[in-house]
Simulated scan of single mutants.
Amino acid sequence: MTNDIQLKIIKPNATLSNFVESFWMLVNNSDNDKDIATLPDGRVDVLFSYSDTEPFNAMLMDLDIHASQIIFSAKTIIFAVSFKLLAVKYILETSIAYQLNNPLQLPDNFWDISINDLNNFENFANKVSEKILNILKGKKVDDKKRRLFEYIYLSNGSMTVKELSAKSFWTSRQINRYFNQYIGISLKEYCTILRFYATLPQIKKGKFFPEQNFADQAHFIKAIKKHSGLTPKELNKNKNDRFVQLLALPKK
């Protein structure tokens, strides 16, 4: 990352790995606002933030389908937890189907996180982990849903709906009904987002050919442009270091 923009990531322990992708911290240390952009990653984020000009707040973010342009205000601190979709029903206990392009303001005391918890990132991750474990305590996760999401993430979205249905012992019709009810997009579209995001390491390395089970080069380029607004070569250049997820990836 740059000296002005600081990004840190902590992976969850094994007991939370089916529900949590990561905990992350993003800080603008400079005295100036920054133009940044985020790319769709197939995760749902809960953000806690504050700055010199904005009070502490908590937000449930929507599931990104396209790249988002953001003005990252000076001296802003964000601590966040990035959830896999199994968490929508079992941890967040809600539906995000009607929330696309519409982040939800959460209560200031959500999960008992306050501005004081944004002083130490490791302590924040530990506190939120304990909260999530308490939410999950005593809950029975449906085996079909657990298997479905395990195969979705293990394959980076490269398995077909038919294959996922067979692996999870859940009909395609029931799966898509679940996705429409809780997520707001189809399983097929969600898998396309995951395949797009899985291509970022290869694009960062300058490899502009499909490695994630795209039908051909044309479909690969079309998917990259749909979700980022850029061709693979343009995305690789990352003009003005806009895309923070690319900055976090190694070049080689």
Rank of each mutant, 00 (worst) to 15 (best):
L118W: 14
K237H: 10
L154R: 15
S168G: 05
K75V: 00
D117P: 04
N176H: 09
K222E: 13
D64M: 12
D52Q: 11
A97S: 15
P210L: 06
A87M: 06
G138N: 09
I65P: 00
R242I: 08
M61C: 10
G42F: 08
V244G: 05
V88L: 05
L85A: 05
E189C: 00
I185E: 12
K127V: 00
N109V: 05
L148Q: 07
L118Y: 14
D241I: 00
N32M: 09
D35W: 09
L133Q: 15
F209S: 14
H219C: 03
S228V: 00
F19C: 04
I77M: 02
K167H: 07
A58M: 04
S17R: 14
T199F: 02
N101Y: 14
K127Q: 12
V161D: 13
K137E: 09
K34I: 03
I132Y: 08
F196L: 02
D31H: 10
L60W: 10
L16A: 08
H219T: 10
S68P: 00
I221G: 05
C191M: 06
V46C: 06
R242H: 11
Q202D: 13
E122G: 01
T38C: 02
K34H: 14
Q181K: 15
K188W: 04
T2D: 15
N18M: 07
A87Y: 09
N126I: 07
I5A: 07
I5K: 09
H219P: 00
R147D: 07
K34C: 06
V46R: 02
R146H: 07
T160H: 12
K251I: 07
P12G: 03
P40L: 04
P210F: 07
